[in-house]
Amino acid sequence: MNIFRLAGDMTHLISVLVLLLKIYATKSCSGISLKTQELYAIVFVTRYLDLFTDFISLYNTVMKLVFIGSSLAIVWCMRYHRVVRRSYDRELDTFRYWILLGVSFILALVLHEKFTLQEVFWAFSIYLEAVAILPQLVLLQRSGNVDNLAGQYVFFLGAYRAFYILNWIYRYLTEQRFTRWISCVSGLVQTALYADFFYYYFISWKNNAKLQLPA
């Protein structure tokens, strides 16, 4: 464990807590893409298949349970909670995410470390996570004004993978045989997708103005 990875995991945890706070405090999920939440639930379920077979550390197991549990709880809330579901921007959240699922799965069948069920699903989850934010970014652009908590949620979600890139650089420099090209390349793509959001987020923060994404 290094400081970059710890910072990344904590930032990821904060993004989940911000989203849970928004949904429970405001009983609203306006500005949040259910499709992105469902993609993230798939990412965690397919990535943590080793949850019950390989024990790495208490921290690792607890965090996996937190991410799987929170993502499923958020999807459940946005679909079935009688108050929250009413504020879901159904007509704006129309990203055809089957394409993301299909492309990621085909890519995982072609590019993986070992051709085993666990490794193929792991690679699938890495590729899927890189593009899972797209429905959310599209929804933010369509909904124009971004409420603070939704903006902070996306900001922390983007920042966590940027910390992981620092972690991979650090591990590459300190551990002679560390190579994780799948994660690294996918993580770079993932963070790049946030680039324009970060830019507009910084502008709005600098001008102390509401976050406005260009349509």
């Binding site: 990821h12 080793d50 390989d54 790495i56 965090m63 991410f67 792991w122 972690n167 994660s183």
Partner: peptide, 10 residues
Amino acid sequence: AKVDSAKDEL
């Protein structure tokens, strides 16, 4: 199963 060090990440 031996978890190679790279798989210890979340």
